[in-house]
Design a protein around this nucleic acid. Structure first.
Lengths: 205, 205
DNA sequence: CCGAACACTTAACAGTGTTAACTCACCTGA
DNA sequence: TCAGGTGAGTTAACACTGTTAAGTGTTCGG
């Protein structure tokens, strides 16, 4: 009586169909195109059906992003194994920027959209948290190895400084790319210049 | 027959009453608390009335922010008269961060909220544009004065780099200040460290 | 004194996320 | 075989957005 499994499989199928439809709208027309009715129409179901598979819209988008951010997580974990802390830090920065450029909608939802107040679910630590922990460990290793100038002895501050610098460059680009009064430079090159500047600024000698 | 003036004055009165009500909701409960009905209720008018004084909600918020950002504009213009380009640049950065910390709702609306598509009015150049131009001129002066390392010869890129770095630090703070898994450092101090790091990185010698 | 301009309201439209109540097919246990 | 429950799916609605067409007076100018 594998009927239970079959049920579970069917449930998974419709779940991923919902997620696929949501992703299409998400990456093609931006987050504001993702409405429950639009998703439902695309998979030829009723909006209510979605609520049998996801608690609410926010949970759906969180689930979608957590799945899709696998590339960022993998990159971070791979880079996390690099020996040299300074080299590791530099590469984490580039991977972060690459992800933001490749998946602007995902980036915008995870890093640029406020969460609904107090409905923050305490599920398994989210991808942004994991990424921050890897960054933090990398910064700490560099400090412990005595690679950085003595004024950068606060791992939290240094991590927040590095994260903020790159987040600002990519998020400004995502938000204001079509503002005509700015002669935008290539975001990857600007980010690289930022990383070079930071590394030279914090490294000893 | 000063009746025309009186009319205009009355019009201005109700206009500012609307703006005041909107600002209260805006700064106290955040931008999501600003609904047309909430504003109307607070001044004991009908929502429709607001539309006789503002084209739509976005125009209302833009008007509100343009007025309130006078402090930022004044600070930028005052700093813009400082002789030394490097000192000017450093102070612009601090003033920018101060504004973001003091007026988080305004900052969020101007620098962290996407504009409604293609309804971008070509009104008198907005405050963010003015601020960017002052920053750009400051960067350019520093380059022209030969104060910066030769690899920073692109004024646009350097301006976008500096803006992005500080924008990232303050916007992360505004958005994720209540995420428990980050041990946030004081945003002004982090920003100051960022500015010091950048200045040391781009200045010659 | 009449007509137009003007401030304002009523009532509605179209869209959003969300939910209570129902139908109906299917599987389980007697 | 058949009662009953489980659960996927739908219908219809609620409460809330921003926004607007149409109507009501009041006030002013010729």
């Amino acid at each position: 009586m594998g009927t239970l499994e079959r049920r579970a499989r069917a449930r998974d199928t419709i779940r991923t169909r919902i997620l696929d439809a949501a992703r299409d709208l998400f990456v093609q027309n931006g987050i504001e195109a993702v409405t429950m009715r639009a998703i439902a129409k695309r998979i030829e179901y009723t909006p209510t059906t979605i609520y049998h598979h996801f608690r609410d819209k926010h949970a759906l988008l969180v689930d979608l992003c957590q799945r899709d951010m696998g590339s960022l997580v993998q990159a971070f974990q791979r880079i996390g194994r690099i020996e040299d802390p300074a080299d590791r830090l530099r590469r984490l920065g580039m991977a972060y920027v690459d992800f933001a450029v490749d998946y602007p909608s995902h980036y915008r939802f995870i890093f640029m959209t406020p969460k609904p107040p107090l409905l923050t679910d305490e599920d398994t630590t989210a991808v942004d948290e994991n990424a921050y922990l890897i960054l933090l460990a990398t910064v700490r290793d560099g400090i412990a190895a005595g690679r950085y100038r003595p004024e950068f002895d606060d791992d939290q501050q240094l991590a927040q400084l590095a994260w903020g610098a790159l987040h600002g460059i990519v998020s400004l680009q995502i938000l204001k790319a079509d503002e005509a009064w700015i002669d935008w430079r290539d975001v990857r090159e600007t980010a690289r210049a930022m990383i070079d500047l930071m590394m030279r600024g914090i490294l000893l000698e």
